[in-house]
Amino acid sequence: MPNWLSNVVLPKIRAVVRRKEVPDNLWKKCPGCEQMLFHRELAANLEVCRNCGYHFRIGGEARFRHLFDDGRFERIELPKVAADPLRFRDRKRYTDRLKEAQAGLGSSGDAVALAEGRIGGQEAIVAAFEFEFMGGSMGTAVGEALIAAARRAVAHQAALIVAPSSGGARMQEGILSLMQLPRSILAADLVKEAGLPYIVLLTDPTTGGVSASLAMVGDIAIAEPGAVIGFAGARVIEETIREKLPEGFQRAEYLYEHGLVDMVVPRGQLAATLGRILSLLRDRERPHPALPVPEPL
């Protein structure tokens, strides 16, 4: 029967063949426990391995969906900046790298995404780094975005939550990327001076210039389990001291033990934790004026 053959058997064969062609998209191997994880199940679990708790990196969109109440938020457009101020070229032109990264992201964005909404009922703006975009590196566009986010937080009396996922400063912008260290710190200060919470949510990885600036000046610092957080890269340290690094070095749990973050919180509990912190910091029952806090000598 030709009908049976073409309607039933052929599709089955095709399905088998196709599955062999694209298993990478449907199944992900967990770097933590080597189990194969089905993509839909993984997405439903906020990209966290059900077996071992390994936290996969996520981009801005997924971050926003799980942090904001009922997954409802509005995107904030990034301010425009001059692209490629140094006309930088290594093996590739920086402008080409930018175009590729933007194509990958499906927008004209950069290594950070902004959105506003409510978390635990509290108004909040979230700046989430996009690691997929040139390693989440911070250049002028990211600095400008953070300053814009801070100004908006002040205007709307909202908290600012920044979730870095970044290798550090964007080398292709040379010294201008280094200048984003003071600039991103100023963004945090704008929020703090207005008496609003500036909370950092350190995700994998938070290193280099991004860790030595906006990531380490939070009123409260929360880290995701297993996230690599530190100033110098592991390879650079090993080459400098000619020693193997200790197990768990520069991981979120290591930073917690060394007093560098307040807590390590699994992704599934982040929204609730943030909501609770925001409501405690911003006690509506007892509003208090924003006073500058004198720093001890």
Binding site: L181, P182, I185, L186, D189, S211, A212, S213, L214, A215, M216, V217, I229, G230, F231, A232, G233, V236, I237, T240, I241, E243, L245, P246, F249, Q250, Y254, H258, G259, L260, E295
Partner: peptide, 22 residues
């Protein structure tokens, strides 16, 4: 770039120094 420097918060120390300058 060293283990001891990281353990004591190299990033935080630099970030706070910049913050204080400003």
């Amino acid at each position: 770039p060293g283990i001891d420097a990281e353990a004591r918060g190299q990033s935080e120390a630099i970030a706070r120094a910049i913050e204080t300058c400003l």
